[in-house]
Amino acid sequence: MTADKTETILPRRSARAARAATPPAARPLPPSLAGDRSLPYPAISRELAELRHEIPGVHGCVLGGVDGLLITHNLQNEVDPNDLAALAATTFGLGRQVGMRLGQGDFQQSTVRNQGGYLSVYAVSEQALLAVIGTDSVNVARLHLHAPGVAGRIAALLTRVPTEA
């Protein structure tokens, strides 16, 4: 009854003058992969198509940057691939925070299962993510075995120095 009103089990945020005085230095970000015309799009599309054909129940794949911008996709339904690229980056953000807090290292993979299907997000490189949309009946174990290989090959394609630069 006499408990202090400001007392709570949850941590409270309070302004810290010392920290506010020295904001962290701005970190230069690498240019976004989205809209980069020098990327080998046909080869990337072949990898995405292979994943869709290899595993029954995969609707399509979206390759996006960690900045949430779409690089390319092979979705054939009415879902906006730009939205999915943004969602993939959101998932990555959560995974990265968990990894940082628990000291578990870099983000690798995250799967969301809903009533009607799956969204799996795989780390491709420091800068790119692969989102895979599957039906409820997709063989997730097979997807988890197959997708990292595809992600690795796409990572190699993304880092390949463009020939005409």
Partner: peptide
């Protein structure tokens, strides 16, 4: 899902989780 709940045995060359995922398709 094709995921394993438990495995025992197996050899160096045979990954039982791969076998499980593949044989899920056989059962289906």
């Amino acid at each position: 899902s094709g995921m394993t709940l438990g495995v025992a045995g197996g050899t160096g060359e045979i990954d039982l989780t791969v076998a499980a995922a593949g044989n899920t398709d056989v059962v289906r």
